[in-house]
Design a protein around this nucleic acid. Structure first.
Lengths: 215, 215, 215, 215
DNA sequence: CTTTAATCGAGACGGTACGTCCCGTCTTATT
DNA sequence: AATAAGACGGGACGTACCGTCTCGATTAAAG
């Protein structure tokens, strides 16, 4: 009969390697955290996603791969993110905030040009480029991801917005100018050329774009 | 590429009343045309694609669906187009050419503003919006389609370019301005706002954008 | 976004109501019993299992369901039973012991026929039928459960064995007959027809089987 | 190209290098058959299923494995069979018909005993045993498969039925005996002991069972 | 009366398998 | 040769359960 304390015998010898369970690629095993979200697992997923996003590997970037790479069950991904794109975006957001510094030299023209040139140069790097492209693709396909993509771009937009706002406060931009529009012209140009890729995005463009915006 | 093979224009022979075979959604049966390309089938495919692009339906927009909707074998699609996106784009191109007329009033400011406002308004219509979005998604996913998407946007870009070029010829734009950049700022803003959708695209924006570009 | 769901979980106060903890389907709350096994919980599990076994519901019969239905944590099930099948079998054993009485009229033929007819009739009842079927399925899938299933059937086999043994003691069965075989012929026929279900299991069969066995 | 009329009689040359598509484990590539069911694929699936059923391998027997082993897409399995069990059963039916010959010596007792002993011996072989067990498990779990299992056992039942029918025609079984019941007693005993496994199934049992049935 | 230890409800976790969807290729039979 | 039809190999998807693990609360027994 089952009721007869079946499990009592093995109460002693758990050899407490028992609490730990899984092996990531770095060979480190992860402990469960009971009924609360396992922050380590979350980080492992985001790390794996970013790693797969930035390093070249053959074949597409699918959820099973992220799960395997993170040493995680697929369900653990789907429990916390609504789609693959959502994971990718969260991975990316964490990572991107540190990419392009926001200059503040006191000169709008200089700050703007520096920021844009930096942005363009980053996007030209193969790793970054791959990430942004993959992401845009995912966002265009899935409306839910699109919203997250919006949030992602928003942080960059805000940085640019801060630059031009400071410029206006210094009187370098007339009060009649629409700052939102100005920012979107810059970022619009960037994404348009980046995604369609038939026109360059280099230092010269950054300068001419700056001139065009601050005229 | 699809467009090339299209130009055969065997428009004459639609009559074949003999061996009828398939029924489209409109209940009309289409005759085989033997060893020549069946123009009716081509049109049925593009129509079906456009219909599926513009009308809401549950589930994704897959090739089997287009084929079924067009009353066509899948191979007939893949014989003439390289991918799903190619079909979609050709369907779209046929349809879009008549959308936004290219004004030529003699005033750059007026032409530009009219063109932009018209473009924005079209994109605001639900049907057009859905199409553009679906397409952008497909382009972002498939590199082959991306190239076609580039070509698609190119025709619109060319139209805008013609406007500003006329402006320069009339001396309304200084020779130091980069016309490519100017055009891309306009279209970049458009796509950026259209796809991310957090800022408006209305008459006012068209006007302010015109001011910003022609300053 | 994931971060949202995280913060949702650690919303501080759980508004605990005191000693009482869980609500079963009957709305009754169960008190903890400290470091001793909670007999009420055990019973709730067995009840829930039996209820799910006997009442039709959509989808399979999984452990999470039993746990939820019993208002119990899954671990509480796995602490006391080695598998899902073990729970099911214990639930069933408790319930089945009272099902088929073991007659003792002094006549083997009569006892045997009564016992078999009763067994057949019970198996014909929808509730019982569902239980037996579910159980057999579980036993076939899981070797551990198979062993428990063996034990379960053993109690019934023993009952039948007692009847024929009394028959032999009265000289109604020749000493050359293999009683084990005889019993297994009866129960074999029963399970075979019950599970495959293409031949009847009624009073007439009970009689003819009796004749065949006691010839 | 092999596309050039691969005739029905493809028994001879499998050497095409062009239109062929897939590689099975034996390195042979399989041609498509257009819009009709590919008989070769069907056979490859059944072969793979039987191979996996009969040879020991680590891990369970899942559909992906069958598909991979057969060099087939999973959908090709699900297109033609409703479940894994259905595949297994069809594989098994093809194979089993040749297993136990149906003797016809003119003596019921002898034929019966031979048939049963043979059946028992086969079931004792590890390969066969594994197959039958896997199958019974699948049948118990899935109602659809149960029906197929019924059909599978039916062919064996029919064989046994033929033996006893011939016996009756020779007058070796009285007209009052229920032949269906007799057959089911034999097969019932077999499956009961086979699946529960606590009593033997050997030559001696075959003999005593024969005596018991033909008394 | 404090500490210890076991139970409980809850549910996240790693993992396996499932059955579905869609892609782009292929072949057949027909025209 | 082009077509309608649809089976095919392949790859990814998101879901269903399994049995394990940890948490924080609870309470009986041990010190």
């Amino acid at each position: 009969m089952a009721a007869k304390r079946v499990t009592e015998t093995d109460s002693s010898d758990k050899s407490y390697a028992g609490a730990v369970t899984t092996t990531g690629p770095e060979g480190h095993r992860r402990a469960h955290t009971g009924r609360r979200r396992n922050e380590e697992a979350r980080q492992a997923i985001l790390d794996a996603a970013l790693r797969l996003l930035t390093t070249p590997h053959d074949g597409g970037l699918n959820v099973d791969l992220i799960a395997r790479e993170a040493g995680v069950g697929k369900q653990t991904i789907y429990r916390w993110w609504q789609s693959k794109g959502a994971v990718l975006l969260e991975a990316l957001t964490d990572w991107s905030d540190s990419l392009v510094p926001v200059p503040d030299t006191g000169s709008l023209r200089e700050d703007l040009c520096t920021f844009l040139a930096h942005t363009f140069r980053r996007a030209g790097e193969p790793a970054t480029s791959a990430v942004l492209r993959t992401l845009a693709a995912e966002a265009a396909r899935d409306p839910g991801t699109a919203e997250l993509f919006r949030q992602f771009t928003q942080t960059r937009r805000d940085a640019l917005h801060a630059i031009v706002r400071r410029g206006r406060e210094r009187g370098e931009i007339g009060p009649e100018r629409d700052l939102e529009l100005l920012v979107d012209q810059a970022y619009g140009l960037f994404w348009y050329r980046f995604l369609l890729g038939n026109e360059p995005l280099d230092q010269g463009v950054a300068e001419r774009l700056t001139d065009s915006l601050v005229c």
